[in-house]
């Protein structure tokens, strides 16, 4: 009981945050289309307040783009078509998730390359240190010399 009350309170408390900057007059009557619009808006960057998606931005252009996204959806565009429409006008920059293409290969692949270099380096270091440890063992002759020296020392002390 208490937990359900807590959950309800938290949900209500979070409501204003989930709404982002979307104003009541922008929201579509069709909840399915509205949900798709929200998802699309979360992946589109606001070109004024960069690093903010248009869903949470109060900038004028962001509002225009939100309305545009909804308009395209109502007109029957797929999600991909809507994103393409905006991308054609504002470029890759408007996508918060950069596309995978030759110009962005370094961006996407660099972490993997760095990981490979790192693991490679660790392995090489470990293997060479193990080899050095093996090289560190003495031959039978050397062991004999040491034993003789130790014996001598023991004899001198006594």
């Amino acid at each position: 009981m208490r937990i359900s009350v807590l959950a309800a309170t938290l949900t209500l408390a979070m409501l204003p945050f989930s709404a982002g900057a979307v104003e009541p007059d922008e929201i579509l009557d069709d909840p399915v289309l509205e949900a798709r619009a929200r998802e699309i808006s979360k992946d589109l960057r606001c070109v004024v307040c960069q690093n903010q998606d248009i869903d949470s931005s109060n900038a004028g252009v962001a509002r225009d783009l939100r309305l545009l996204v909804r308009e395209r959806l109502v007109a029957g565009d797929t999600d991909a078509e809507v994103v393409d429409f905006v991308q054609a006008r504002y470029g890759d920059f408007v996508l918060l998730k950069p596309p995978f293409k030759p110009e962005t290969y370094p961006l996407w692949l660099a972490p993997g390359v760095f990981f490979l270099i790192g693991t490679g380096a660790v392995f090489t270091v470990l293997r060479s240190s193990r080899k050095r440890a093996v090289e560190g063992t003495l031959s039978d002759d050397e062991e004999g010399t040491i034993a003789a020296l130790l014996d001598d020392e023991a004899g001198e002390k006594s």
Partner: peptide, 13 residues
């Protein structure tokens, strides 16, 4: 009036 041409031009402000 509605800023739609502005979007076509890709303006940010």
């Amino acid at each position: 009036l509605n800023g739609r041409a502005g979007i076509e031009w890709g303006i940010s402000g």
